[in-house]
Amino acid sequence: MNLRLRPDVASTDTPDGTVLLDQRTGRYWQLNRTGAHVLRQLVAGHDVDGIAARLSARYGLDVGQVRRDVFDVADRLCAAGLAEVA
């Protein structure tokens, strides 16, 4: 699964992650640092399995749990209308 931000979504990085502004609705959203990292990786073309493997290795966590976390935030981004499958 690769994602891209929808054309009318603007983003900016902050010390705590990334803020996304949906210019269609005026709503804005905060991704925490891990979420921002996941979004950047997905937009760059990395797949969920690879992202989860690197994160689980970095933190010594179960890769299955991290994979579910990555999928969950990707699903939320799509459900919120901020991103779409590329």
């Binding site: 804005y28 991704l31 640092r33 891990t34 979420g35 935030v73």
Partner: peptide
Amino acid sequence: DEQTLPEVYEPPALLAVGEFTE
């Protein structure tokens, strides 16, 4: 990039912050 990841794992999260007015 990875250098900005937290030292302790935080599950990736998306939170609604607010809404700009017209």
